[in-house]
Structure formats: structure tokens, C-alpha cells
Design a protein around this nucleic acid. Structure first.
Length: 728
DNA sequence: ATGGACAATGTTTTT
DNA sequence: CATTGTCCAT
């Protein structure tokens, strides 16, 4: 069987290229995963390369898993020994193996975003700094950027006084991490790059091993990743990277698409292949995509083409507000499913910010339709999940102080801030971490005990110490799941979290879901389970099993495809997020983000924006996104809402909004419904008496009026319900 | 030490 | 508006 028979010329050239550096610039839907997987299969089966000598890295576990499956599909089970994983997971493994060369132990834990933030907070406190002036989130951002640019604390670049302070926080943060035997996400890359750079023996070991290095989504690598790749490929120099600068959307995370240019410079003998044929979308969708992306300056123009049909025109839909935008999406989906034009699982709804999912979820709930939401944070960020994981992490690595402080008093066992502070100073005096000290506490005899830690405090701490040592003793015999069950039982976590309310029930359900996840690690280690849990990506939470529409951010949508795509919230300030306005580079990235969204669609695409949008609870008029005006009119079907209908009584709101296809409506549809109240008008309310109108606006087919009453102050009323009388 | 009530405060995107 | 933190009463 010829494994490359089904490829086009460019793809074949890429797959069968010989040795040396190779850059594949692959437009959306051009089969880049295919090229990567076939390349691996080709190396193994045709070139006789041992899988052990191949390294392939991706950004998400999902991409890695998919690639592995496809390679196995091609060449069967000849992939044993192949290193295929995400950047972070691959680095994590190298660091565990090489821990002897590094200032942490091999059983280190990985701190997630929350842990990192609380550690920065601690660092700021330790230095007696004002956390208003040095907001942990912003400081952490600075530290993260520094790490991505390979700056260790001592090399942190200083341009002003603030930088000096940030450096001090960075130094302290770094100490705290090491004291907890923990690494943050950025450390995984930083330490690996640093190790390879500074230790020639280790570098050589890996560089000689990896005869071939393959990289997916190369445009999203940051300097740390670029550097470590360079070292890993430093011996054989067979580095095969695939990417698309037009899909670079992680600049804020340190990604630098100029690594593509750097690649061509660093590897003078590299060859470049362009993949321009798109196998995913209709021509109509591609036309819109190109109209959007062409406006970005300084890009290498790509000529995307497809052999697919022209297809349906892209629909550009204006809605009255974000709520009707959401019901519009749901109604359209329900309609197409009812008419048998698509399955529920064919749809994806995309948005710029996670907060936008709420209204969509409500709309789906209201219509009684199931949906699936992509987002790991939603699950792993929950209190009960974090608690359980903290227990497990503590058992694995008692030095983890963030976990210790999290659960030492969960459920409450009489250890408050005071007792904890006592524990901390005692541990400090002995030069060990609080967790380690705690582990030894129950082993101490009375003669060893000291006066300061006695009485009640000692008793409650000893209680927890016994629990911890008990679990630690069992960890080697028990699977992650069994250990988890033991912890749940010993702490009485069920009765603690499930108080009988719906919410409590939900929380316990979540714990059960985590149990299910742990059960997949029956034959694996606690370490592997913890690592997996720490490094899940949002995309990994996507389950393809249920046939329901998918809700996800544009960022999470990268690399995926759907038959029908809705992109919602195409308004200035939302898609072009307001935080990007003052930065041209950021604005270009917003455009790429939209481009990524558009090119996810195979058959149909709906672009939606609204006249009003609510932020902080208040609805405000907004402009359509500036990107909307970049799309030539003839490429889309424009739809505008007819006048919002008045709602009477308690009628259910979510009826399909009627569509009026207006290619050229001269009259503004809004002109037909004026508010009946204006600022300054005087009115009488049956119970509140005399008042003056402050403002009035249309919302949900009704009029919302803010009135200042002489006797009762400011009130907000719904015009159709309040019996207002206008005073002349 | 604990838990409830209130106020302030803040929203991109995520491995 | 919704989450998070701080204060105060038990």
C-alpha cells in the first residue's frame, strides 16, 4: 500500500522530503495534521527510522492523541517508543528524568494558574508591598513573560523602578516555588530550555537520540519553546515544522510568529513548502476568510483555493441585543435540525470571551436543547475538585505549601490562621517545609516536643499529621483512585460538601466525575494522574461522543472543524476586544482570531452582531465590529431584525425571531419604536407618587425606565407593568 | 475559630 | 452582576 497516494503534490513533497530542516506553511484546512502523521509513518515504515528516535510535539493533548491514533491507523502498532506529546508534558518528563541536575526533586508538582496567583500574592505580602500597586495578576503576567523569554530572576530586565520591584517579587516567587518543590507552567519550558542550554552532556543525549523532531502549530511557539527545539534538534538538524502565521493567536502568552522567520534565518538550508489547497470549506466561506485576513499588513499572501462547491452565502446577522442574538442562534439550530439539514453535533457556537457563553447556555436551556461547553477551567477550577487534588498533591509532595494551606482545615478541623502560623515558624526554625514538619510531627516523642507547640494547637495539628502520614504510607500500595477514596472517606468529604441542597449535590457529582477520571489511571501512578490533571487543555475536555452543539471560545476552536459555525458578538469592544484597541499588534491578532473562527466552518457560516450588548449587567448600544465592514457586501446575506415586539403579560419570550431579508432597507427598523418616556419628563406612579424620568431604553421588547421619585428615590420600572401617568 | 453578611472590585484569550 | 475579600457577631 502506498501511504502517500492520496496526497496532493505539495503534501507529498513535504511528507517524502529528505533530511534537513523543513518549514511547511499550511493554510487552514490544508491537511497539516495529515502531513505530520504521514511524515511520521513515512519515516518509520519507508525510511526505517526507529520510533524511539522520533519526537513530535503539539500544543494540546487532544492534538497529540489524534496524531497518535492516525499514525497507528497508517502503520499499525509499530509506534512503540515514539515520543509524541505536548510541549509541556514532554518537558515535564525530561525534567523528572533529569532532576538530579536541577534545583528540585523529581516528584515536583505542577502549579496551575490559581496556585501561581496565590504564590505571587504571598511573595508580594512577604515583601510588604502594596497589592494594589503591584496587583498579583499583573505581576504574574510580567513574570510569565519573562520566563517565556528565558529571563531567570537574576537577569530580569530592568528599565524603571517598577521593574526593580517586580524583579524582587520574581526572586521571592521563585524561592517559594522551589520551597514547595513545585514548577509552574512556564517553568516546564524554561527549565528544560535552560538545562539543554547549560548542560552539554544532557543536551547531547537528547539531541543524538532525536533524529527527527516534528512540530505542530509552530507559529504559536514562544522563545523558550523555540530554544528548546533548537537544542533538541542540534545534532541531527532534522527539524520539520508546520504552521500558519495567519493563525497565530497566542501572542499574549509569549507566542511569537516571527519564530517562523527566525527559523528560516537559523536554518539557512531549510526548505519551504506552501499548502494552499483547502479541503474543508466552501468557496463562499473561504472568500470571506480571505477578505478578512487580507487586511493584515506584512503577511505572506497565501492563495487559498478549494475544489469544493461555491456553497451557501455566509449570513451576516444583526440582532437587537445579545440576548436575542443567543436565541437566534438556538432557533436557527433548532430549525435546521427540525428540517433535517444537519445533526445537532454539526454545530459550533464561538465567542471571544468565556463570559459570553452564559446567555447562550441560558438560551439552550430555555429551549430544552442539550449543548456541550468546552472549557477545562470550568471543571478543574471548582472548589471541590481543587480540594481533592490538593490532598493528592500533598500526599505526593508534602512540601507543596499551596495545597497544604488549601486543605489543612478542610473540612474544618480547628486549624485557623494562628495555628498555621505557629506551624510555619516551627518548620522554618528547623529548616523544613511546613508539610514535611507536619509529617514528622506524629512521630516525635514527648521529650522532643517543644513548649511553643503544645496544648490545643499541637493536638489539632497532630490529628492532621496522622491523616497525612496514614495516606503517605498507603500511597505506594494504592491506585490513584483507591487513594482518593481513602481520602474522601477519612475526611468525611461527602457529608462536608453535600449539604443536601442542589448545589451540594452538584458538587458531589463533580467529585464523582473526578473519580471517573482517576479510574482511567488504575494501572498508572499518582504522579501521572496529577500531571495529567495539571496539564489538561480546554480542547481536551471536548467530548465527541454526544451529538449536541458545541460552545467554545475562538481560541479553543483552533484546529477544529464543524459543518455549521456561528461566530457571535461581532461588535467593537467584544471581537476586537476593547483591551486590544491601543495596540496595533493586538488588533492584528484579533483579526487573525476571527480568521481562525471563520475557517473552522465547512458548509455554513453565520456571523452575528447586535445593536445592544450588556456588560456589568447594563445593556448599552454598541457598534458592529470594524471587521464586519471589511467583508464585501456581495459576499454575504445581511439580515436585520424587525422591530422588537411588545411582550404582553407573562408570555414566554423565546420565539423565533422573524427574519426579514433586506438587501436594501432604507428605513431604520428601530425608527418605528420610540421610547414613550424621555429624560426630564415628570410622571406619577400609583404608589411612589411624583417622579422625574432620568432615562429610558428599549429592552426585551419593553421599555425600561429609570425614575427619581421625590419620596422614595431612584427606581427602575418596566413601562408596561408600572402604571405611569405623564404629568403635563 | 467559624461562618455569615456586606462591600468593593473587576472581565480576554490558556498550556 | 457575580465573584472575591473583609469585617463582625457568634
Amino acid at each position: 500500500m502506498d501511504i502517500v497516494a492520496q496526497l496532493n503534490d505539495q503534501q507529498q513533497q513535504a511528507v517524502m522530503s529528505g533530511l534537513g530542516p523543513m518549514l511547511v506553511l499550511a493554510g487552514p484546512g490544508s491537511g497539516k495534521t495529515r502531513v505530520l502523521t504521514q511524515r511520521i509513518a513515512f519515516l518509520i515504515s519507508a525510511m526505517g527510522v526507529k520510533p524511539y528516535h522520533i519526537l513530535a510535539v503539539t500544543f494540546t493533548n487532544k492534538a497529540a492523541r489524534e496524531m497518535e491514533e492516525r499514525v497507528i491507523d497508517l502503520i499499525g502498532d509499530y509506534t512503540r517508543g515514539l515520543t509524541l506529546g505536548t510541549f509541556h508534558a514532554t518537558c515535564a518528563r525530561i525534567l523528572r528524568r533529569e532532576a538530579e541536575h536541577l534545583p528540585f526533586e523529581s516528584n515536583y508538582v505542577i502549579f496551575d494558574a490559581d496556585d501561581q496567583l496565590s504564590l505571587v500574592k504571598r511573595a508580594v505580602q512577604d515583601l510588604n508591598l502594596d497589592d494594589k500597586r503591584y496587583r498579583p495578576a499583573s505581576v504574574h503576567n510580567a513574570i510569565s513573560n519573562a520566563k517565556n523569554e528565558l529571563f531567570l530572576p537574576e537577569n530580569y530586565p530592568i528599565n524603571n523602578y517598577r521593574d526593580e520591584v517586580v524583579q524582587r517579587i520574581y526572586v521571592r516567587y521563585h524561592e517559594l516555588l522551589l520551597a514547595s518543590n513545585a514548577l509552574d507552567f512556564d517553568d516546564l519550558l524554561l527549565w528544560t530550555a535552560h538545562l539543554l542550554q547549560s548542560n552539554p552532556a544532557v543536551r547531547d543525549k537528547y539531541a543524538r537520540r532525536y533524529e527527527h523532531v516534528l512540530v505542530d502549530e509552530f507559529q504559536d511557539t514562544n522563545l523558550a519553546q523555540y530554544t528548546l527545539l533548537k537544542h533538541l534538534a542540534s545534532f541531527h538538524k532534522n527539524i520539520f515544522v508546520v504552521g500558519d502565521t495567519d493563525q497565530s493567536i497566542y501572542r499574549w502568552r509569549g507566542a511569537d510568529y516571527r519564530n517562523v522567520l527566525r527559523f528560516e534565518k537559523d536554518y539557512q538550508d531549510s526548505r519551504v513548502i506552501l499548502l494552499e489547497q483547502n479541503y474543508r470549506s466552501t468557496q463562499a466561506i473561504l472568500d470571506v476568510a480571505m477578505a478578512v485576513i487580507d487586511r493584515n499588513p506584512y503577511r505572506t499572501p497565501k492563495n487559498l483555493f478549494t475544489e469544493r462547491e461555491q456553497g451557501e452565502k455566509v449570513v451576516l446577522h444583526e440582532a437587537y441585543d445579545d440576548r436575542s442574538e443567543a436565541s437566534l442562534v438556538v432557533d436557527t439550530i433548532a430549525g435546521m435540525v427540525a428540517r433535517d439539514q444537519a445533526n445537532p453535533g454539526d454545530f459550533a457556537v464561538m465567542y471571544r470571551t468565556n463570559a459570553q457563553s452564559r446567555l447562550l447556555e441560558e438560551a439552550f436551556l430555555h429551549a430544552g436543547l442539550p449543548y456541550k461547553l468546552v472549557g477545562a477551567q470550568r471543571f478543574y477550577g471548582r472548589r471541590e475538585i481543587k480540594d481533592i487534588i490538593a490532598f493528592l498533591r500533598l500526599v505526593h509532595n508534602p512540601s507543596d505549601e499551596v495545597s497544604l494551606t488549601r486543605v489543612i482545615n478542610v473540612p474544618t478541623r480547628g486549624i485557623g490562621t494562628k495555628t498555621y502560623r505557629l506551624l510555619r515558624t516551627q518548620a522554618q526554625q528547623r529548616g523544613v517545609s511546613p508539610g514535611e514538619y507536619l509529617c514528622n510531627l506524629s512521630l516525635q516523642t514527648d521529650s522532643e516536643s517543644n513548649d511553643e507547640l503544645a496544648g490545643r494547637a499541637r493536638k489539632v495539628l497532630e490529628n492532621f499529621s496522622k491523616l497525612l502520614t496514614h495516606w503517605k504510607g498507603k500511597k505506594s500500595q494504592l491506585s490513584p483512585l483507591a487513594l482518593m477514596d481513602q481520602i474522601l472517606e477519612d475526611t468525611g468529604y461527602h457529608s462536608y460538601i453535600d449539604d443536601g441542597t442542589d448545589e451540594g449535590n452538584d458538587r458531589w457529582e463533580n467529585v464523582m466525575e473526578l473519580r471517573r477520571l482517576a479510574s482511567e489511571f488504575q494501572d498508572s501512578t499518582l504522579e501521572a494522574f496529577l500531571e495529567r490533571v495539571a496539564l489538561v487543555s480546554d480542547q481536551d475536555t471536548l467530548d465527541s461522543s454526544s451529538n449536541a452543539p458545541t460552545l467554545l471560545t475562538l481560541h479553543a476552536a483552533k484546529g477544529l472543524e464543524f459543518r455549521v459555525v456561528f461566530i457571535t458578538g461581532l461588535n467593537d469592544g467584544t471581537l476586537t476586544h476593547s483591551r486590544s484597541f491601543d495596540d496595533p499588534e493586538a488588533m492584528m491578532e484579533e483579526r487573525r482570531l476571527l480568521y481562525v473562527g471563520i475557517t473552522r466552518a465547512k458548509d455554513r457560516l453565520y456571523l452575528l452582531y447586535s445593536q445592544n450588548r450588556s456588560a456589568y449587567g447594563y445593556s448599552e448600544p454598541v457598534e458592529a465590529s470594524r471587521f464586519v465592514w471589511d467583508i464585501p457586501e456581495e459576499l454575504v446575506t445581511s439580515v436585520h431584525p424587525i422591530q422588537p415586539r411588545r411582550r404582553v403579560g407573562k408570555q414566554v419570550p423565546s420565539r423565533p425571531e422573524r427574519w426579514s431579508f433586506s438587501e436594501s432597507t432604507d428605513s431604520d427598523p428601530r425608527a418605528t419604536t420610540h421610547p414613550s418616556y424621555h429624560a426630564g419628563m415628570r410622571v406619577i406612579h400609583p404608589t411612589w407618587g411624583d417622579g422625574m424620568i432620568l432615562n429610558s431604553r428599549l429592552q426585551d421588547n419593553d421599555e425600561i425606565v429609570d425614575i427619581f421619585f421625590e419620596n422614595v428615590g431612584l427606581k427602575r420600572v418596566v413601562a408596561s407593568i408600572a402604571q405611569l401617568e405623564i404629568k403635563s
